[in-house]
């Protein structure tokens, strides 16, 4: 049916365009947590292009009607899982030479995000194509803009600043033990190192709001993500042969507060607080034990009976 071709072409093109733009915008948000190597950018935008093509083509396929064609979406899901594996493997191999580790939880979170973003792209292009098919190009524009906003909202997850207060803290030594306020961090043996840490180090205290937040910062992976973010933004004086300067986040076992110590290149407390506050909350660390209250109560009552 050649007379339908231009129509379908417009529909598909509208979807692809909307999807690829979404991918590009979402990729720029990534920058903070993942260095955008030029080749990485290219790979992700191209995969985003394929994802949006798949989403866009689905509409004419259904209308045609060629329902079996929709099964290729399953194939697409397979492909995107592949992206997750690829990202994970890349970051894991980089991790070996990283002085301040991201932590496996952070890597898993980033990899999962990359996968999920392709689904968002596919959704955007599908919605745009549907609008283009049934309501014309102006409607497609509106739907594309709306889906982009939804994607942005969907992908900007919670950050530490949402669930915790971050306040400046004092570094001190109790004998050889380095302390952030009253939290013991590590034993530093060499005296010149102690002096340097006191002079050039920075420390903050992360004070969780309530039990759920406490459970989140209790997670070791979340804490190494915080330390990593701080080290990325302020720089760190650590080197292979100076393990003393590793940024460390330790918790107060009684209150659940977390003290972070770092020896930054740039000694700027405001910046450090901002870096800690902007650390994303990892999916694997997010926990809401308080929400389990009713279930626990039920279980306890059952036991009594």
């Amino acid at each position: 049916m050649p007379e339908y071709m231009p129509d379908y072409l417009t529909v598909i093109l509208a979807g692809i365009l909307a999807g690829t733009i979404t991918r590009f915008v979402l990729l720029r948000i990534d920058y903070r947590q993942y260095p955008g190597y030029p080749h990485g950018y290219l790979a992700h935008i191209f995969i985003g292009f394929i994802a949006s093509a798949l989403g866009a083509v689905a509409v004419p396929a259904i209308i045609k009607p060629d329902f079996t064609a929709v099964t290729f979406l399953a194939l697409a899901a397979q492909q995107f899982r592949e992206i997750r594996t690829m990202e994970r493997r890349t970051l894991e191999s980089l991790e070996r030479t990283e002085l301040v580790k991201r932590g496996l939880d952070y890597i898993e979170g980033i990899a999962r995000t990359f996968e999920a973003r392709n689904y968002l792209v596919m959704g955007t292009s599908f919605a745009t194509s549907v609008a283009a098919q049934f309501a014309g190009i102006p409607a497609a524009f509106i739907v594309a803009a709306l889906s982009l906003l939804v994607s942005l909202h969907f992908m900007s997850g919670e950050v530490i600043g949402d669930i915790c207060d971050v306040v400046p803290a004092r570094l001190s030594f109790d004998g050889a033990i380095l302390k952030v306020d009253d939290i013991s961090i590590i034993n530093v043996g060499l005296k010149p190192m102690r002096e340097k840490i006191l002079n050039e180090g920075l420390a903050v205290m992360v004070k969780p709001h309530g039990g759920n937040a406490r459970a989140t910062v209790h997670d070791m992976g979340q804490r190494s993500a915080v330390a990593f973010n701080a080290a990325v933004i302020l720089g760190t004086k650590k080197d292979v042969d100076i393990p003393e300067f590793t940024p460390l986040a330790r918790k107060n076992p009684d209150t659940g507060e977390v003290g972070l110590y770092i020896l930054p290149v740039e000694k700027d407390m405001e910046q450090l607080i901002a870096a800690v506050k902007l650390t994303p909350i990892l999916e694997s660390a997010r926990s809401k034990p308080l929400k389990a209250g009713p279930v626990i109560k039920e279980a306890r009552n059952k036991k009594v009976n």
Binding site: V188, G189, L190, P243, E244
Partner: peptide, 9 residues
């Protein structure tokens, strides 16, 4: 040794 020194005091 790329190791960290700890003081047992």
């Amino acid at each position: 040794l790329d190791a960290m020194v700890h003081d047992l005091e």
